[in-house]
Simulated scan of single mutants.
Amino acid sequence: MITPRKILLAVFCAITFLLILRSFREPEVPGAPGYRPVKKISDEEKDALANPARKTPPQGRAQLPFGALPAAPLRERLRYQFPYEIENKFPAYIWQTWKYSPASFWFDEDLRSLEASWTEMHPGFTHEVIPDDTQQHLIKYLYGSVPDVFEAYDSLPLAVMKADFFRYLVLLARGGVYSDIDTSALRPAHTWLPEELDRTTIGLIVGIEADPDRDDWHEWYSRRLQFCQWTLVAKPGHPVLRDMVAYITEHALRMKRAGILKVGKMDKTIMEFTGPGAWTDAVFRYFNNPAYFNIQPGDKNITYEDFSHQTTHRKVGDVVVLPITSFSPGVGQMGAGDPDDPMAFVKHNFGGTAAVSTSLLRYTWE
């Protein structure tokens, strides 16, 4: 027989259960739904030094036998070290790189307002600008358990290639938002997705860089539709990032062993090795990989046609593709809107910095 006392007891138990569940949820950055607080990378390293038992393995994983791990394929070692947990919130990191730290006298004055826009738009986020002389140290720290990745990074002969590789490496290991130093934030990252999209089903956000619907597109771009990698958002361990890191590592070490990992001797251009061409291919490989998608016989591959002339968000599995306006507003071509368009989130400032010359180098170097 149901009595008022039993009803009250049931309500009390239900409320208690919900409170217990909430206590296990990741804390969230105030005013930034879907993002959780993180430590500065320097604090993380200090903690690792102070607590050696917690330094390895990263991500709280159980230690594998020492004899087994090095023999495992690279992608499996990366999967082990940086597991992908889609249900978790995006880490509240803003990652950028430059020759000098913002605290340095040598930091370019025309970059200060751009860099500051990311901090101002993201209160509560950890904003890290990693200078050139620190990148090597950070990659060695993050990838100490996967030494061939560090060897590949350390062997790359050009700074632009290391800058490309760094963004994939840091997002695979720690996640968050990466954006080039010559970009400015127009809207906070937590507003880049519609409220109705469940963040626990999304692990990667990419934007369209180019959609040249013209016969001579190949004279200007490496792909008919190209995804940009000057701004990326990811949760740690995402399979596209893992594939990209493995791809660059394998080709870098192959060319190193062959003695051709040198300027003018490599058998891949920067665009096809570390740049947007290779990145675009990695995204499409993921979309068409039966290990991640239920692809039936006769199903059509996902191609550029599925995103050409896109004007709003498009979700494919756990990836959200943003239109060209989102990361390239104001370019005046390929259907891109203005910087005040509701879908404009990041502005890439292509003038007056060395970052621009490295962007152009991707298209001109052979």
Rank of each mutant, 00 (worst) to 15 (best):
L172G: 02
L158D: 12
A189F: 15
V146K: 02
L138I: 12
L186C: 07
F165K: 04
I139V: 14
D180T: 10
G176V: 01
L142Y: 03
D198Q: 12
S184T: 13
I202H: 07
G203S: 06
G175N: 01
D180H: 11
G207Y: 03
L171P: 02
A159P: 07
L138Y: 09
I181W: 08
T201L: 12
R167T: 04
D180N: 14
R167I: 00
K162H: 04
S145D: 09
I208V: 15
P147K: 08
A173F: 03
L169R: 02
R199E: 11
L138K: 09
F165A: 04
S155Y: 05
Y153V: 00
D180I: 05
I181S: 11
H137P: 07
Y143I: 02
V146H: 02
L193F: 10
K162P: 00
T183D: 11
D164C: 10
K140P: 01
V206M: 09
A163G: 13
L156T: 00
I202R: 06
L138T: 06
V170Q: 07
P147D: 08
A159E: 14
P147H: 07
Y143P: 01
L169K: 03
D182R: 15
V149S: 02
S155M: 06
L204K: 04
K140W: 08
G175Y: 01
L171E: 03
E195Y: 13
Q136H: 10
P194W: 12
R199P: 05
L193R: 09
I208Y: 00
L193G: 10
A173W: 01
I181L: 15
R199N: 14
D198S: 13
K140E: 14
L197H: 14
A152P: 02
R187Y: 04
Q136W: 08
I208R: 00
L138S: 05
L142V: 04
S145N: 13
P147L: 08
P157D: 02
E151A: 13
T201Q: 13
G175R: 00
